[in-house]
Write a protein that binds this DNA or RNA. Structure first.
Lengths: 212, 212
DNA sequence: GCGGATGCTGAATGTCTGTTCAATTCAGGA
DNA sequence: TCCTGAATTGAACAGACATTCAGCATCCGC
Protein backbone atom coordinates (compact mmCIF):
# COMPACT_ATOMS: atom_id res chain seq x y z
CA UNK A 1 0.00 0.00 0.00
CA UNK A 2 1.44 3.32 -1.04
CA UNK A 3 0.65 6.94 -0.56
CA UNK A 4 -1.39 8.19 -3.50
CA UNK A 5 1.03 11.00 -4.23
CA UNK A 6 4.36 9.23 -4.57
CA UNK A 7 6.47 10.65 -7.33
CA UNK A 8 8.64 7.58 -7.84
CA UNK A 9 9.23 6.44 -11.36
CA UNK A 10 7.74 2.97 -11.00
CA UNK A 11 4.33 4.31 -11.98
CA UNK A 12 2.85 4.06 -15.44
CA UNK A 13 3.35 7.18 -17.53
CA UNK A 14 -0.37 7.81 -17.33
CA UNK A 15 -0.27 7.77 -13.55
CA UNK A 16 2.86 9.90 -13.46
CA UNK A 17 1.13 12.54 -15.57
CA UNK A 18 -1.94 12.47 -13.35
CA UNK A 19 0.13 12.86 -10.19
CA UNK A 20 2.11 15.73 -11.66
CA UNK A 21 -1.11 17.40 -12.74
CA UNK A 22 -2.63 16.97 -9.27
CA UNK A 23 0.39 18.66 -7.75
CA UNK A 24 0.68 21.47 -10.29
CA UNK A 25 -3.04 22.21 -10.55
CA UNK A 26 -3.08 22.45 -6.77
CA UNK A 27 -0.08 24.72 -6.40
CA UNK A 28 -0.42 26.87 -9.50
CA UNK A 29 -4.03 26.55 -10.55
CA UNK A 30 -5.58 25.19 -13.71
CA UNK A 31 -3.62 27.76 -15.70
CA UNK A 32 -0.40 25.73 -15.74
CA UNK A 33 0.55 24.66 -19.22
CA UNK A 34 0.48 21.10 -20.45
CA UNK A 35 4.15 21.57 -21.28
CA UNK A 36 4.96 22.25 -17.64
CA UNK A 37 2.97 19.22 -16.52
CA UNK A 38 4.58 17.04 -19.18
CA UNK A 39 8.02 18.22 -18.12
CA UNK A 40 7.28 17.50 -14.45
CA UNK A 41 6.19 13.99 -15.41
CA UNK A 42 9.28 13.59 -17.66
CA UNK A 43 7.12 12.97 -20.65
CA UNK A 44 6.38 14.65 -23.98
CA UNK A 45 3.47 17.08 -24.32
CA UNK A 46 1.91 14.89 -26.96
CA UNK A 47 1.62 11.97 -24.58
CA UNK A 48 -0.59 13.95 -22.22
CA UNK A 49 -3.12 14.45 -25.00
CA UNK A 50 -2.70 10.88 -26.13
CA UNK A 51 -3.70 9.56 -22.72
CA UNK A 52 -6.29 12.09 -21.63
CA UNK A 53 -7.65 13.52 -24.86
CA UNK A 54 -7.40 17.14 -23.82
CA UNK A 55 -6.42 19.36 -20.96
CA UNK A 56 -9.99 19.22 -19.66
CA UNK A 57 -9.83 15.45 -19.87
CA UNK A 58 -6.73 15.51 -17.72
CA UNK A 59 -8.48 17.69 -15.21
CA UNK A 60 -11.47 15.36 -15.13
CA UNK A 61 -9.16 12.41 -14.51
CA UNK A 62 -7.45 14.18 -11.62
CA UNK A 63 -10.83 15.18 -10.23
CA UNK A 64 -12.05 11.64 -10.39
CA UNK A 65 -8.96 10.20 -8.75
CA UNK A 66 -9.26 12.61 -5.83
CA UNK A 67 -12.98 11.98 -5.54
CA UNK A 68 -12.47 8.24 -5.51
CA UNK A 69 -10.02 8.47 -2.63
CA UNK A 70 -12.81 9.90 -0.50
CA UNK A 71 -15.75 7.92 -1.85
CA UNK A 72 -13.95 4.59 -1.41
CA UNK A 73 -13.30 5.35 2.21
CA UNK A 74 -16.78 6.72 2.81
CA UNK A 75 -18.28 3.57 1.32
CA UNK A 76 -16.13 1.29 3.40
CA UNK A 77 -17.58 2.70 6.61
CA UNK A 78 -19.84 0.14 8.32
CA UNK A 79 -23.41 1.27 7.73
CA UNK A 80 -24.58 0.52 11.23
CA UNK A 81 -21.87 2.34 13.09
CA UNK A 82 -23.11 4.16 16.20
CA UNK A 83 -23.42 7.87 15.56
CA UNK A 84 -20.59 9.08 17.74
CA UNK A 85 -18.21 6.52 16.26
CA UNK A 86 -19.39 7.45 12.78
CA UNK A 87 -18.58 11.09 13.17
CA UNK A 88 -15.20 10.20 14.58
CA UNK A 89 -14.54 7.74 11.75
CA UNK A 90 -15.43 10.39 9.19
CA UNK A 91 -13.12 12.83 10.88
CA UNK A 92 -10.34 10.28 10.72
CA UNK A 93 -10.82 9.89 7.00
CA UNK A 94 -10.07 13.55 6.57
CA UNK A 95 -7.06 13.65 8.82
CA UNK A 96 -5.75 10.44 7.26
CA UNK A 97 -6.12 11.68 3.71
CA UNK A 98 -5.37 15.37 4.11
CA UNK A 99 -2.70 15.23 6.78
CA UNK A 100 -0.03 13.36 4.83
CA UNK A 101 -0.88 14.75 1.40
CA UNK A 102 -0.29 18.46 0.79
CA UNK A 103 -1.11 17.85 -2.87
CA UNK A 104 -4.64 16.71 -2.15
CA UNK A 105 -5.12 19.53 0.35
CA UNK A 106 -4.10 22.14 -2.18
CA UNK A 107 -6.21 20.58 -4.87
CA UNK A 108 -9.27 20.49 -2.64
CA UNK A 109 -8.83 24.17 -1.88
CA UNK A 110 -8.93 24.88 -5.61
CA UNK A 111 -12.02 22.70 -6.00
CA UNK A 112 -13.87 24.77 -3.43
CA UNK A 113 -13.30 27.81 -5.63
CA UNK A 114 -13.49 26.56 -9.15
CA UNK A 115 -16.57 24.38 -8.78
CA UNK A 116 -15.48 21.51 -10.92
CA UNK A 117 -18.06 18.69 -10.94
CA UNK A 118 -15.94 16.49 -8.69
CA UNK A 119 -15.36 19.31 -6.23
CA UNK A 120 -19.08 19.95 -6.14
CA UNK A 121 -19.70 16.27 -5.47
CA UNK A 122 -17.10 16.04 -2.71
CA UNK A 123 -18.36 19.04 -0.79
CA UNK A 124 -22.04 18.25 -1.24
CA UNK A 125 -21.28 14.76 -0.01
CA UNK A 126 -19.59 16.26 3.01
CA UNK A 127 -22.60 18.41 3.82
CA UNK A 128 -24.95 15.46 3.57
CA UNK A 129 -22.73 13.18 5.62
CA UNK A 130 -22.20 15.83 8.26
CA UNK A 131 -25.90 16.58 8.51
CA UNK A 132 -26.75 12.90 8.84
CA UNK A 133 -24.04 12.39 11.43
CA UNK A 134 -25.40 15.29 13.45
CA UNK A 135 -28.95 13.98 13.25
CA UNK A 136 -27.87 10.59 14.51
CA UNK A 137 -25.86 12.21 17.23
CA UNK A 138 -28.86 14.34 18.20
CA UNK A 139 -31.10 11.29 18.53
CA UNK A 140 -28.63 9.88 21.01
CA UNK A 141 -28.68 13.08 22.99
CA UNK A 142 -25.22 14.19 21.94
CA UNK A 143 -26.29 17.59 20.68
CA UNK A 144 -27.92 20.59 22.27
CA UNK A 145 -31.52 20.38 21.16
CA UNK A 146 -31.83 24.12 20.57
CA UNK A 147 -28.91 24.35 18.14
CA UNK A 148 -30.21 25.49 14.74
CA UNK A 149 -30.47 22.36 12.54
CA UNK A 150 -30.23 24.46 9.40
CA UNK A 151 -26.78 25.85 10.16
CA UNK A 152 -25.32 23.08 12.30
CA UNK A 153 -23.71 21.19 9.41
CA UNK A 154 -22.06 24.30 8.05
CA UNK A 155 -20.79 25.32 11.44
CA UNK A 156 -19.12 21.97 11.88
CA UNK A 157 -17.77 22.07 8.34
CA UNK A 158 -16.42 25.57 8.88
CA UNK A 159 -14.44 24.35 11.84
CA UNK A 160 -13.25 21.30 9.94
CA UNK A 161 -12.44 22.98 6.64
CA UNK A 162 -11.26 26.28 8.05
CA UNK A 163 -7.72 25.06 8.63
CA UNK A 164 -7.64 23.59 5.13
CA UNK A 165 -8.52 26.91 3.56
CA UNK A 166 -6.54 29.09 5.90
CA UNK A 167 -3.47 26.85 5.85
CA UNK A 168 -1.06 29.54 4.60
CA UNK A 169 -2.50 32.18 6.93
CA UNK A 170 -2.15 29.81 9.87
CA UNK A 171 1.36 28.86 8.92
CA UNK A 172 2.44 32.49 8.88
CA UNK A 173 0.83 33.10 12.26
CA UNK A 174 1.84 30.06 14.26
CA UNK A 175 5.26 29.64 12.69
CA UNK A 176 5.04 25.93 12.00
CA UNK A 177 3.37 23.78 9.32
CA UNK A 178 -0.37 23.80 9.96
CA UNK A 179 -0.63 20.09 9.14
CA UNK A 180 2.35 18.77 11.09
CA UNK A 181 1.12 15.79 13.12
CA UNK A 182 1.66 17.49 16.45
CA UNK A 183 -0.07 20.69 15.31
CA UNK A 184 -3.03 18.70 14.00
CA UNK A 185 -3.32 16.98 17.36
CA UNK A 186 -3.34 20.24 19.31
CA UNK A 187 -5.81 21.84 16.93
CA UNK A 188 -8.09 18.82 16.98
CA UNK A 189 -8.23 18.88 20.73
CA UNK A 190 -8.96 22.61 20.77
CA UNK A 191 -11.67 22.18 18.14
CA UNK A 192 -13.38 19.44 20.09
CA UNK A 193 -13.44 21.71 23.10
CA UNK A 194 -14.78 24.53 20.94
CA UNK A 195 -17.51 22.38 19.42
CA UNK A 196 -18.48 21.11 22.84
CA UNK A 197 -18.63 24.29 24.84
CA UNK A 198 -18.27 27.31 22.60
CA UNK A 199 -16.01 30.24 23.23
CA UNK A 200 -17.92 33.02 24.88
CA UNK A 201 -19.18 32.91 28.44
CA UNK A 202 -22.53 34.42 27.63
CA UNK A 203 -24.27 36.21 24.79
CA UNK A 204 -24.81 39.88 25.52
CA UNK A 205 -27.78 39.98 23.19
CA UNK A 206 -28.82 37.02 21.09
CA UNK A 207 -30.40 39.13 18.37
CA UNK A 208 -27.30 41.26 17.75
CA UNK A 209 -24.36 40.59 15.46
CA UNK A 210 -21.08 39.52 17.02
CA UNK A 211 -19.60 38.01 13.87
CA UNK A 212 -21.32 37.84 10.49
CA UNK B 1 -22.24 57.60 -1.35
CA UNK B 2 -22.30 54.72 -3.76
CA UNK B 3 -21.65 51.04 -3.65
CA UNK B 4 -18.03 50.38 -4.70
CA UNK B 5 -19.06 47.96 -7.41
CA UNK B 6 -21.49 49.95 -9.50
CA UNK B 7 -21.13 49.31 -13.18
CA UNK B 8 -22.70 52.53 -14.34
CA UNK B 9 -20.96 54.44 -17.05
CA UNK B 10 -20.45 57.65 -15.10
CA UNK B 11 -17.14 56.37 -13.85
CA UNK B 12 -13.78 57.29 -15.32
CA UNK B 13 -12.47 54.76 -17.82
CA UNK B 14 -9.77 53.85 -15.36
CA UNK B 15 -12.33 53.04 -12.70
CA UNK B 16 -14.52 51.15 -15.15
CA UNK B 17 -11.58 48.95 -16.08
CA UNK B 18 -10.76 48.31 -12.44
CA UNK B 19 -14.35 47.37 -11.61
CA UNK B 20 -14.57 45.04 -14.58
CA UNK B 21 -11.29 43.44 -13.57
CA UNK B 22 -12.49 42.99 -9.99
CA UNK B 23 -15.56 41.21 -11.23
CA UNK B 24 -13.84 39.06 -13.83
CA UNK B 25 -10.81 38.14 -11.71
CA UNK B 26 -13.24 37.08 -9.02
CA UNK B 27 -15.50 34.98 -11.19
CA UNK B 28 -12.99 33.56 -13.65
CA UNK B 29 -9.64 33.87 -11.96
CA UNK B 30 -6.54 35.78 -12.95
CA UNK B 31 -6.47 33.84 -16.20
CA UNK B 32 -9.01 36.06 -17.96
CA UNK B 33 -7.54 37.92 -20.87
CA UNK B 34 -7.03 41.66 -20.99
CA UNK B 35 -9.19 41.67 -24.09
CA UNK B 36 -12.11 40.20 -22.15
CA UNK B 37 -11.68 42.75 -19.39
CA UNK B 38 -11.37 45.59 -21.90
CA UNK B 39 -14.51 44.43 -23.66
CA UNK B 40 -16.43 44.25 -20.38
CA UNK B 41 -15.34 47.81 -19.62
CA UNK B 42 -16.21 48.90 -23.18
CA UNK B 43 -12.69 50.03 -23.80
CA UNK B 44 -9.79 49.08 -26.04
CA UNK B 45 -7.12 46.63 -24.88
CA UNK B 46 -4.44 49.26 -25.30
CA UNK B 47 -6.09 51.55 -22.78
CA UNK B 48 -5.80 48.95 -20.06
CA UNK B 49 -2.04 48.92 -20.46
CA UNK B 50 -1.96 52.70 -20.81
CA UNK B 51 -3.59 53.13 -17.41
CA UNK B 52 -2.12 50.25 -15.45
CA UNK B 53 1.19 49.51 -17.15
CA UNK B 54 0.68 45.77 -17.34
CA UNK B 55 -1.72 43.03 -16.39
CA UNK B 56 0.07 42.63 -13.07
CA UNK B 57 -0.27 46.36 -12.54
CA UNK B 58 -4.01 46.02 -13.06
CA UNK B 59 -4.14 43.21 -10.55
CA UNK B 60 -2.18 45.26 -8.04
CA UNK B 61 -4.59 48.16 -8.51
CA UNK B 62 -7.59 45.89 -7.90
CA UNK B 63 -5.87 44.38 -4.87
CA UNK B 64 -5.19 47.79 -3.46
CA UNK B 65 -8.71 49.04 -3.99
CA UNK B 66 -10.17 46.03 -2.18
CA UNK B 67 -7.63 46.31 0.60
CA UNK B 68 -8.37 50.00 1.08
CA UNK B 69 -12.08 49.33 1.50
CA UNK B 70 -11.25 47.28 4.58
CA UNK B 71 -8.35 49.27 5.95
CA UNK B 72 -10.25 52.56 5.78
CA UNK B 73 -13.06 51.12 7.81
CA UNK B 74 -10.73 49.38 10.25
CA UNK B 75 -8.90 52.65 10.80
CA UNK B 76 -12.09 54.59 11.37
CA UNK B 77 -12.97 52.42 14.36
CA UNK B 78 -12.67 54.41 17.61
CA UNK B 79 -9.51 53.16 19.31
CA UNK B 80 -11.01 53.09 22.79
CA UNK B 81 -14.11 51.12 21.96
CA UNK B 82 -15.07 48.59 24.64
CA UNK B 83 -14.09 45.09 23.63
CA UNK B 84 -17.54 43.68 23.08
CA UNK B 85 -18.55 46.66 20.96
CA UNK B 86 -15.29 46.41 19.03
CA UNK B 87 -15.85 42.81 18.03
CA UNK B 88 -19.38 43.68 17.00
CA UNK B 89 -18.20 46.69 15.01
CA UNK B 90 -15.62 44.59 13.21
CA UNK B 91 -18.25 42.03 12.40
CA UNK B 92 -20.44 44.75 10.97
CA UNK B 93 -17.66 45.88 8.68
CA UNK B 94 -17.63 42.45 7.13
CA UNK B 95 -21.35 42.11 6.72
CA UNK B 96 -21.59 45.67 5.39
CA UNK B 97 -18.85 45.18 2.83
CA UNK B 98 -19.38 41.55 1.86
CA UNK B 99 -23.14 41.36 2.05
CA UNK B 100 -24.01 43.75 -0.77
CA UNK B 101 -21.00 43.01 -2.97
CA UNK B 102 -20.70 39.57 -4.54
CA UNK B 103 -17.73 40.86 -6.54
CA UNK B 104 -15.67 41.58 -3.45
CA UNK B 105 -16.71 38.26 -1.90
CA UNK B 106 -15.55 36.33 -4.93
CA UNK B 107 -12.35 38.29 -5.18
CA UNK B 108 -11.54 37.68 -1.52
CA UNK B 109 -12.06 33.97 -2.01
CA UNK B 110 -9.46 34.05 -4.78
CA UNK B 111 -7.11 36.02 -2.57
CA UNK B 112 -7.25 33.32 0.09
CA UNK B 113 -5.98 30.87 -2.49
CA UNK B 114 -3.62 32.77 -4.66
CA UNK B 115 -1.75 34.59 -1.93
CA UNK B 116 -1.37 37.91 -3.61
CA UNK B 117 0.33 40.49 -1.36
CA UNK B 118 -2.94 42.31 -0.69
CA UNK B 119 -4.74 39.09 0.15
CA UNK B 120 -1.97 38.16 2.55
CA UNK B 121 -2.26 41.57 4.20
CA UNK B 122 -6.03 41.41 4.52
CA UNK B 123 -6.11 38.00 6.14
CA UNK B 124 -3.12 38.58 8.39
CA UNK B 125 -4.78 41.79 9.50
CA UNK B 126 -7.92 39.83 10.27
CA UNK B 127 -6.04 37.34 12.41
CA UNK B 128 -4.34 40.09 14.38
CA UNK B 129 -7.54 42.06 14.86
CA UNK B 130 -9.47 38.97 15.88
CA UNK B 131 -6.81 37.91 18.35
CA UNK B 132 -6.68 41.36 19.90
CA UNK B 133 -10.45 41.55 20.09
CA UNK B 134 -10.55 38.19 21.87
CA UNK B 135 -7.87 39.26 24.33
CA UNK B 136 -9.81 42.38 25.21
CA UNK B 137 -12.96 40.37 25.52
CA UNK B 138 -11.17 37.88 27.78
CA UNK B 139 -9.98 40.63 30.11
CA UNK B 140 -13.57 41.67 30.56
CA UNK B 141 -14.57 38.13 31.38
CA UNK B 142 -16.38 37.54 28.12
CA UNK B 143 -14.49 34.39 27.21
CA UNK B 144 -14.09 31.03 28.82
CA UNK B 145 -10.67 31.17 30.43
CA UNK B 146 -9.76 27.64 29.45
CA UNK B 147 -10.30 28.12 25.71
CA UNK B 148 -6.99 27.61 23.90
CA UNK B 149 -5.61 31.10 23.10
CA UNK B 150 -3.53 29.71 20.24
CA UNK B 151 -6.51 28.47 18.25
CA UNK B 152 -9.23 30.84 19.39
CA UNK B 153 -8.68 33.40 16.63
CA UNK B 154 -8.76 30.76 13.92
CA UNK B 155 -11.87 29.17 15.31
CA UNK B 156 -13.67 32.49 15.21
CA UNK B 157 -12.33 33.23 11.75
CA UNK B 158 -13.41 29.79 10.54
CA UNK B 159 -16.95 30.54 11.61
CA UNK B 160 -16.83 34.01 10.07
CA UNK B 161 -15.11 33.10 6.81
CA UNK B 162 -16.66 29.67 6.39
CA UNK B 163 -19.79 31.03 4.70
CA UNK B 164 -17.65 33.19 2.42
CA UNK B 165 -15.69 30.19 1.21
CA UNK B 166 -18.57 27.75 1.14
CA UNK B 167 -20.98 30.17 -0.47
CA UNK B 168 -21.76 28.00 -3.51
CA UNK B 169 -22.01 24.86 -1.41
CA UNK B 170 -24.39 26.59 0.97
CA UNK B 171 -26.47 27.99 -1.84
CA UNK B 172 -26.98 24.53 -3.32
CA UNK B 173 -27.95 23.12 0.05
CA UNK B 174 -30.27 25.76 1.47
CA UNK B 175 -31.81 26.75 -1.83
CA UNK B 176 -31.49 30.50 -1.46
CA UNK B 177 -28.64 33.00 -1.85
CA UNK B 178 -26.25 32.56 1.08
CA UNK B 179 -25.81 36.31 1.40
CA UNK B 180 -29.40 37.43 1.11
CA UNK B 181 -30.08 39.85 3.99
CA UNK B 182 -32.54 37.56 5.71
CA UNK B 183 -30.25 34.55 5.37
CA UNK B 184 -27.33 36.51 6.78
CA UNK B 185 -29.48 37.49 9.75
CA UNK B 186 -30.48 33.92 10.52
CA UNK B 187 -26.96 32.64 10.11
CA UNK B 188 -25.51 35.39 12.25
CA UNK B 189 -27.88 34.55 15.05
CA UNK B 190 -27.07 30.83 14.79
CA UNK B 191 -23.35 31.57 14.76
CA UNK B 192 -23.56 33.72 17.87
CA UNK B 193 -25.33 30.88 19.62
CA UNK B 194 -22.69 28.46 18.36
CA UNK B 195 -19.82 30.65 19.50
CA UNK B 196 -21.45 31.13 22.86
CA UNK B 197 -22.43 27.61 23.75
CA UNK B 198 -20.96 25.14 21.31
CA UNK B 199 -22.84 22.33 19.68
CA UNK B 200 -22.28 19.11 21.57
CA UNK B 201 -23.71 18.38 24.96
CA UNK B 202 -20.56 16.82 26.32
CA UNK B 203 -17.22 15.56 25.03
CA UNK B 204 -17.04 11.78 25.11
CA UNK B 205 -13.26 11.87 25.37
CA UNK B 206 -11.30 15.09 25.22
CA UNK B 207 -8.17 13.46 23.86
CA UNK B 208 -9.89 11.77 20.90
CA UNK B 209 -10.58 13.14 17.44
CA UNK B 210 -14.12 14.23 16.64
CA UNK B 211 -13.25 16.37 13.66
CA UNK B 212 -9.77 17.06 12.31
C1' DG C 1 10.08 -14.04 -37.37
C1' DC C 2 6.03 -11.30 -38.28
C1' DG C 3 2.01 -7.89 -37.95
C1' DG C 4 -0.69 -5.07 -35.65
C1' DA C 5 -1.60 -2.60 -31.77
C1' DT C 6 0.08 0.51 -28.20
C1' DG C 7 3.31 3.92 -25.98
C1' DC C 8 5.70 7.66 -27.02
C1' DT C 9 8.14 11.54 -29.37
C1' DG C 10 9.02 16.21 -31.20
C1' DA C 11 8.21 19.26 -34.78
C1' DA C 12 4.40 21.79 -36.91
C1' DT C 13 -0.15 24.44 -36.73
C1' DG C 14 -3.30 27.84 -35.77
C1' DT C 15 -5.23 30.40 -32.02
C1' DC C 16 -4.90 33.40 -28.29
C1' DT C 17 -2.00 35.93 -25.21
C1' DG C 18 0.20 40.51 -23.25
C1' DT C 19 2.26 44.32 -25.02
C1' DT C 20 3.76 48.06 -28.36
C1' DC C 21 2.99 51.95 -31.10
C1' DA C 22 1.69 55.24 -34.59
C1' DA C 23 -2.33 57.67 -35.31
C1' DT C 24 -6.67 60.07 -33.83
C1' DT C 25 -9.67 62.59 -30.81
C1' DC C 26 -10.44 65.86 -27.52
C1' DA C 27 -10.22 69.33 -23.64
C1' DG C 28 -8.24 73.44 -21.94
C1' DG C 29 -4.82 77.24 -21.63
C1' DA C 30 -2.37 80.92 -24.18
C1' DT D 1 -7.21 80.12 -32.98
C1' DC D 2 -3.59 77.42 -32.24
C1' DC D 3 -0.95 74.46 -29.25
C1' DT D 4 -0.05 70.89 -25.99
C1' DG D 5 -0.68 66.97 -23.46
C1' DA D 6 -3.62 63.39 -22.13
C1' DA D 7 -7.12 59.87 -23.41
C1' DT D 8 -8.15 56.47 -26.58
C1' DT D 9 -7.96 53.43 -30.48
C1' DG D 10 -6.92 49.37 -33.37
C1' DA D 11 -3.57 47.17 -36.06
C1' DA D 12 0.61 44.70 -35.47
C1' DC D 13 4.08 41.58 -33.07
C1' DA D 14 6.39 37.98 -30.69
C1' DG D 15 5.73 34.44 -27.68
C1' DA D 16 3.06 30.82 -25.39
C1' DC D 17 -0.63 28.00 -25.68
C1' DA D 18 -3.42 23.39 -26.66
C1' DT D 19 -3.71 20.30 -30.06
C1' DT D 20 -2.36 17.44 -34.34
C1' DC D 21 0.25 14.24 -36.70
C1' DA D 22 3.65 11.49 -39.00
C1' DG D 23 6.94 8.61 -37.46
C1' DC D 24 9.79 5.57 -34.31
C1' DA D 25 10.11 2.04 -30.69
C1' DT D 26 8.39 -1.78 -28.16
C1' DC D 27 5.65 -5.27 -26.90
C1' DC D 28 2.35 -9.47 -27.62
C1' DG D 29 -0.25 -13.07 -29.97
C1' DC D 30 0.63 -16.07 -33.82
Amino acid sequence: MRSPTVQDSDLSARAKIREAALRLFGTSGFGVSLRTIAQAARVSPGLVIHHFGSKDGLRAAVDESVLSVFLERFDSLPKDLPADLLSRAMANIFSDVLGPSPDIRQYLRRCLLDETPAGTTIFDEMVVATRRGLELLERRGGIRSDADPEWRPFQVLSVVLGPLLMEPVMQRNIGEPAYAPDVVRRRTSANLDFLSRGLFTRAADTRAEPMP
